[in-house]
Design a protein around this nucleic acid. Structure first.
Lengths: 116, 116
DNA sequence: TCAATTCGTTTCGGTTCCGTTTCCAACGCG
DNA sequence: CGCGTTGGAAACGGAACCGAAACGAATTGA
């Protein structure tokens, strides 16, 4: 069964998750960074800079910088593609997996508390 | 009935909404700005800088700056409280209401498309 | 009345992000 | 081999944001 929500519920859910994120500010990711992170963790690998840039409709430089930031946070890691050494493959990390998992927990938690 | 989701569904929903936001970049709001905007539109007025700052657990300066930005985008408006002229009351705008409504539409849309 | 408090804004110095352009190593094809 | 193409990073100047602190105006209350 597909998830069904009324407009007021969807917005309230969004607000509650955003508030949780701001209040406990685990990592202060931008919307773009969050979209990149989730794509890396949810879509099947391999992930390259170029492919991510196309999927998000942004420039490659945006992806490179986001990977710099999230790499420093240890949320993702970069590795040269040995098959084609021009490519960089982006991989998940244990820390990143935990972070993403926690986001999912927050969403489910807030969804379950939603007024009917 | 409360909304129920499995972890994979919740994360996929989050990703899809983030991707929609990034790709069509309507307004490029930060997580904080989005939390503030939704609170103004979903929680009952009146909204003051101080109350918003407490609700989000951030400094008043953060709220002031976010209101500057979103005010320039015409998503919210500021008015002096005539009862107590130290206060600033933050109000909704037509443009902001449309924007918030659209976010709700995206969430519902993406939720309905979620794999079972 | 006048000092203390409250509210929101502004300023400071610093960091991070942005878009664009330029660069370089690796590839692939003639 | 040489040369155009590709993938990603680096460089550039500009814009936005940050926390902390200082600031004025409005209010309170002794």
């Amino acid at each position: 069964m597909p998830i069904e929500m009324r407009p007021s519920q969807s917005l309230r859910l969004w607000q509650q998750v955003m508030l949780a994120e701001v209040r406990d500010d685990f990592y202060d990711l931008t919307t773009r960074q969050m979209a990149i992170l989730l794509t890396i963790y949810l879509d099947p690998p391999p992930h390259t800079v170029r492919a991510l840039a196309e999927k998000l409709n942004v420039s490659k430089a945006v992806i490179t910088r986001a990977l710099d930031t999230m790499g420093a946070m240890k949320l993702v890691s970069r590795h040269r593609d040995e098959k084609d050494k021009r490519n960089v493959l982006i991989r998940r990390t244990v820390e990143g997996a935990l972070y993403v998992e926690r986001i999912g927990d927050v969403i489910i938690d807030k969804a379950s508390e939603l007024p009917i």
